[in-house]
């Protein structure tokens, strides 16, 4: 391994990047699990909440189900925007380092 690679691997910037990516991934996964399993466990354990009528015949379960779908998409969007803007830019900077 030549010096420039070692410098990159041992640099604070690289370590921070690795740690940051892990944190963001973990946070996104946690949100998703909370969102989906929160909903599905509600279905499994407390149907009365979902069966509550919120106007006419519409039950609370219908907007909640839709919210899970929309929420999952928003989480995906947030993650993709972060990865493509912030993370990829940092990777590019490191690559530039490596070449020098």
């Amino acid at each position: 391994m030549d010096d420039s690679t070692r410098r990159v691997l041992e640099s604070a910037e690289f370590r921070q990047l690795v740690a940051r990516r892990w944190r963001v991934s973990a946070l996104a996964s946690a949100c998703l699990f909370f969102l989906y399993y929160g909903y599905i466990l509600l279905v499994g354990t407390n149907k009365a909440v979902l069966a509550r009528r919120i106007g006419g015949a519409v039950t609370l379960g219908i907007p909640l189900g839709a919210a899970v779908i929309v929420g999952a998409w928003i989480l995906t969007a947030a993650y993709v925007v972060w990865a493509n803007r912030s993370y990829d830019a940092a990777v590019q900077r490191l690559r530039a380092h490596l070449d020098r």
Partner: peptide
């Protein structure tokens, strides 16, 4: 509808 919600949720994990 419960099935319909679950169908999408695997995707973000795939990103």
């Amino acid at each position: 509808m419960i099935y319909a919600t679950g169908w999408l949720v695997g995707w973000p994990a795939l990103t």
